[in-house]
């Protein structure tokens, strides 16, 4: 009997850890709930119920007459699609084969520590993406080159602000403000200011949150969908706020727009 009780708690730990990794990497709500259930049922539990919001997970697992419950709060959320992919692969394996608790635990810990791309790669790809947007908006080659450097600025400010633990609203406002001032200064003599500003602001667009909001509402997780919709609106407001302050300052300083 003691062994069984131990086991139900171990399984719960595993299931909640998987859910936490998924939620922190930016997975949809239904995927988190499904994965938690699948891990619990694979380890021989009778029932598993999960209730997931973008900011927390609540799970109860049942075995016979025993229940085990765990509630965790998920605070730092980032985007790491590779982790979602890896947990999805593990979850697919669980459909066909049975693993013991230890194996699943080790696999999960391995995924949790998976390496990100180094900062320099990300900075470079942000810059290249920003330059490509300038071409997409029918800008000239000069616009693309200026956007390349503006994209670097906006990404590094966002990155370090996130690292310092500044909340996403202020971090986005700051990144948008600084980089717009920078691009207005750079485009004084040549280049199209509007195109440079748009292409580098595209780096701040909350694409993942929009996609997840849509998919959550299709999957009828309405609480999570409303949550994410609000986050999208807040981020858009933050971008606009930074831009308004920057443009007003530039106009007051007599710069040409």
């Amino acid at each position: 009997m003691d062994y069984v009780k131990n086991n139900i708690n171990d399984v719960l730990e595993n299931a909640v850890l998987a859910g936490k990794i998924l939620l922190e990497s930016g997975a949809e709500t239904y995927r988190v709930e499904e994965t938690i259930q699948r891990i619990a049922l694979n380890c021989g539990m009778d029932d598993a119920q999960a209730f997931v919001l973008p900011t927390g997970i609540m799970t109860t697992i049942t075995l016979g007459k025993e229940n085990a419950t765990k509630i965790i709060r998920v605070k730092n959320r980032s985007i790491n699609l590779d982790k979602i992919d890896q947990i999805n692969a593990l979850s697919r394996e669980l459909m066909t084969t049975k693993y013991d608790v230890e194996t699943i635990r080790n696999r999960l810990l391995l995924i949790q520590d998976a390496q990100q791309y180094p900062f320099s790669w990300k900075l470079l790809s942000a810059a290249i993406g920003s330059g490509a947007f300038a071409l997409l908006f029918k800008g000239s080659m000069i616009d693309a080159i200026i956007s390349f450097f503006a994209g670097m600025i906006v990404y590094s400010i966002k990155f370090f602000a996130d690292k310092l633990g500044i909340n996403f609203f202020i971090a986005t406002t700051l990144a948008s403000f600084c980089s717009i001032i920078f691009s207005i200064l750079l485009t004084q003599s040549f280049g199209n200011t509007d195109i440079v500003i748009i292409s580098m602001l595209m780096l701040l667009v909350p694409g993942l949150v929009i996609t997840n909001a849509v998919r959550d509402s299709v999957a009828q997780d309405l609480g999570a969908a409303v949550n994410r919709l609000l986050e999208t609106i807040l981020i858009a407001t933050a971008i606009a706020l930074g831009a308004i302050i920057a443009i007003a300052l530039a106009k007051a300083g007599g710069l040409t727009l």
């Binding site: 982790k83 791309y117 790809s125 993406g129 490509a132 997409l136 595209m202």
Partner: peptide, 14 residues
């Protein structure tokens, strides 16, 4: 341009 931009975002999102 869409090709390059999408690839760049794929790297940003790991």
């Amino acid at each position: 341009a869409s090709f390059i931009a999408t690839g760049a975002f794929a790297i940003l999102f790991t």
